[in-house]
Design a protein around this nucleic acid. Structure first.
Ligand SMILES: [Zn+2]
Ligand SMILES: [Zn+2]
Ligand SMILES: [Zn+2]
Ligand SMILES: [Zn+2]
Lengths: 132, 132
DNA sequence: CTTGTAAATGTTATATTATTACATAACGTT
DNA sequence: AACGTTATGTAATAATATAACATTTACAAG
């Protein structure tokens, strides 16, 4: 069962925006979109984003500096994330593949380092873009 | 056999700096360090970095916005990268594990998307930091 | 209910990371 | 030499993110 997080006002505004957009969003585009709701400064956006990432409601796509709503409604893991990114249209989707996540969560090497978290980004051409 | 790339003057200066440092470096720290060699503007640094990334001599650690020299001297792959990052001391090392790279290079799912590239970042505490 | 504490907010300024635009030079091939 | 490609130089600016500080809200312990 996923822990319930009561989102604060700003967190809710920003999560709803990202979630409804269904697309990756940039921080300053989010800022622009929520200014009518009274959120006026970058820091207000970044603070909400930080919290939402922390609790796993959204993820940051590091190679693109964008944020998307978690598409794995059942998973509370912001510690084991995998995405596919189309290099042509920049479409992003979250990969939820239990074999992959098991493989990576159990991965260890000779470094003696214990991995508690990972982020994986796959790149390629999506179906739509390929057929063009 | 890896293709030989003749680095240009700026590319060589910047690659040598990163390679010798043995550490992840930030773009503006690189800039600061090469100013005595006549490289005065961010763009000169970013252009060299772009090229070096493209040919696989260095890699960008996306979650940190830093660059490190490729530690896999034998591999020409800038298309299949994996790193371990210590969240305490920010030490980064490149993982070269043939099973892992095979597994990920062959990964496919039902999306119909063909993945031509991936980047994986593992996070945790390195040996040194754990023992403190 | 009040007091203490953590979390969230508001606001201004600033730091950090990266690119646009345009001009010139060097390199490699024919 | 002429051509196309790659690299360089320079100035300005865009895009991303954080520091510092003041205040407010939420919520639990006493
Ligand atoms: Zn998710
Ligand atoms: Zn696409
Ligand atoms: Zn490498
Ligand atoms: Zn460490």
């Amino acid at each position: 069962m996923q822990k319930e997080h009561n989102l604060s006002k700003n967190q809710k505004i920003i999560f709803d925006l990202i979630d409804k957009s269904g697309e990756p969003m940039k921080a300053y585009s989010i800022l622009f979109n929520v200014q009518k709701k009274g959120i006026k400064a970058p820091l207000q956006v970044y603070r909400a984003l930080d919290k939402l990432v922390e609790i796993g409601k959204i993820h940051k796509i590091e190679s693109r500096n964008v944020f998307i709503a978690c598409q794995n409604s059942s998973c509370q893991i912001s510690k084991a994330t995998a995405f596919s990114i189309c290099e042509s249209c920049e479409n992003v989707s979250e990969i939820s593949n239990s074999k992959l996540s098991k493989y990576l969560s159990n991965f260890s090497d000779e470094s003696g380092m214990k991995y508690s978290k990972y982020n994986l980004e796959f790149f390629g051409m999506c179906k739509k873009c390929k057929s063009k």
